[in-house]
Design a protein around this nucleic acid. Structure first.
Length: 476
RNA sequence: GGCGGCGUACCCAAGUGGUUAAGGGAGAGGUCUGCAAAACCUCCAUUCAGCGGUUCGAAUCCGCUCGCCGCCUCCA
């Protein structure tokens, strides 16, 4: 078994990954807040999660993965009051918060499917909705209260940061002291919190808020960190192997999650924190929802790019590096996908079902090692392309099983492509055009032959005159 | 103000102390082909923002300068 290395934000080092329980990895990744479509930057993050899961599985681990969907609770401004983003959208669109959340949840899942991102495994194929875990959150808040790390005032239940100070506590992840974090606080807080550092676990007395639940402290709604702690611990236990999310979550969200979780359980919350860098746009600026305009997957599809090309595009950069988005760069990935697709279509059943040659094995080793080296997907992708190129050169396509194993992480679906191509039937009219063209070529009537080729192309079919005969296939 | 990151060819992007600086896209030439497509071959950074330093040796470590960006407010 090869060791698997991953960068741990807690230590700021690449570490060998060793799970708490042999053979099993407990993994929680932060999911979306569903009030707008997920943009390409968000999708990069979920692709990273997917790649991590798949790479762990390649190493023989069973991955118990939980992902949340936040359908309540995030404020447009901090201080735990303000307007809930879902409610904001609801008002703007004249719908109920639930309708908004359901709509964007569905859209999100559809996007995942297009990118062939696997769904969480705990519960199987399900996402954990915050609104369905209110009792779990209340129970966790009660635990924190019981241990004296929270207090109740008029505006809500707050986590008592002052009590939780000390070495290895607040600031452990971000490496900033509270004073540093709040050195230039841009928002005034007008509440009855004991300290400006305290954050809400449960918000009370916000009558304007649409989504409210009963609690031991009164009617209200959860603070925006508590759902992740409650749901992750409910399904995965009090200590998780891996917790991932965007880099922006390091200083506040994950810091607070650690505080509220560890104060409640007295145990380490997360063993490996993993954070992905952003997709950036022009001039390296972050693509984000709050910045207004942002590209979504549908925009790529609209200009003829396969979602899987975006998958390969993201595979082409390390998850910890910013990735510069441009249509040109995504088109380059589309060319890679076309190349791989072309190869897969040309592999016959006999080879696909037979054994591989010996020579591809080292390629798999290199692929595996690249992934185990802190998920070096660009190198892994380079190996895949090398392997296919070498197969062409040797005129030996007996690499199919090797490719299939790589595909468990790459996610191109080589076998699906191959099978679809193999079972493809040409419509009668296309078949007729092909026959006419063959006839014309036989007579060396190349003008007519070329005209027929153009006709086929116009109808979406490619013509290739190979030594083995003419092949007509639908353009992918 | 604090914390953090980045700057590698026309574009995207690996490499982070030691063979000729991965890979892809674009571009140029070639093989094959009636032509085309596909595929393959060749070429395409004596150089890693700049300047100093450490070292036998640096794109990789240190310092300074310039430029860009992120977080500290909901954010992947």
């Amino acid at each position: 078994m090869k060791p698997f290395f991953i960068y741990n934000t807690l230590s700021r080092k690449v570490e060998e990954f060793v799970p708490l329980h042999p053979g099993v990895v407990t993994y929680y990744s932060c999911g979306p807040t569903v009030y707008l479509p997920q943009h390409l930057g968000n999708m990069r993050s979920y692709l990273f999660t997917d790649t991590l899961k798949r790479a762990l599985r390649l190493n023989g681990y069973e991955v118990r993965h939980v992902m949340n969907i936040t359908d309540v609770g995030h404020m447009t401004s901090d201080q735990d009051a303000g307007e809930d983003k879902i409610e904001k959208t609801a008002r703007a669109e004249g719908r109920s918060p639930k309708e908004v959340a359901d709509y964007y949840t569905e859209l999100f899942i559809h996007n995942l499917e297009m990118l062939r991102i696997e769904k969480p495994t705990v519960p199987p194929g399900q996402f954990c909705r915050a609104t369905e875990h209110i009792p779990d959150m209340i129970a966790l808040i009660q635990r924190i209260l019981d241990r004296g790390y929270a207090y109740v005032v008029h505006s809500g239940v707050y986590f008592d940061v002052e009590k939780w100070r000390g070495p290895g506590r607040m600031g452990r992840l971000s490496r900033q002291s509270l004073e540093e974090q709040f050195a230039e606080q841009r928002l005034e807080h007008a509440s009855d919190k004991r300290s400006k550092h305290d954050f809400a676990l449960w918000v009370l007395n916000q009558p304007g808020h649409l989504m409210q639940w009963d609690s031991p402290w009164g009617r209200g709604y959860p603070g925006w960190h508590i759902e992740c702690s409650a749901m992750s611990m409910k399904y995965l236990g009090e200590t998780l192997d891996i917790h991932s999310g965007g880099l922006d979550h390091v200083p506040i969200h994950h810091e607070n999650e650690i505080a509220q979780s560890e104060s409640a359980t007295g145990k380490p919350f997360v063993r490996y924190f993993v954070h992905n860098a952003f997709l950036v746009g022009m001039e390296g600026a972050k693509i984000s929802k709050s910045s207004g305009r942002f590209p979504v997957l549908a925009d790529l599809v609209a200009v003829g790019i396969d979602p899987i090309a975006f998958r390969l595009f993201c595979f082409g950069a390390k998850y910890r590096s910013e990735l510069a988005f441009s249509l040109d760069a995504v088109r380059a990935a589309q060319r890679n996908l076309d190349y791989l697709t072309e190869f897969a279509r040309g592999v016959p059943d006999g080879i696909a079902h037979g054994a591989d040659s010996d020579w591809p094995q080292p390629y798999f080793e290199r692929f595996h090692e690249a992934l185990n080296n802190d998920l070096n997907t660009p190198q892994a992708l380079a190996v895949v392309l090398d392997l296919v190129g070498e197969s062409y050169r040797r005129n030996d396509k007996r690499i199919w099983n090797t490719l299939a194993r790589m595909d468990t992480v790459l996610g191109v679906d080589f076998e699906g492509i191959r099978r679809r191509a193999a079972s493809e039937r040409l419509p009668a009219e296309i078949e007729a055009l092909r026959a006419q063209r063959d006839e014309a070529r036989k007579k060396k009537d190349f003008a007519r032959s070329d005209a027929l080729r153009n006709e086929l192309l116009a109808r979406g079919y490619e013509v290739k005159d190979t030594p083995a005969g003419t092949v007509v296939q639908r353009r992918n």
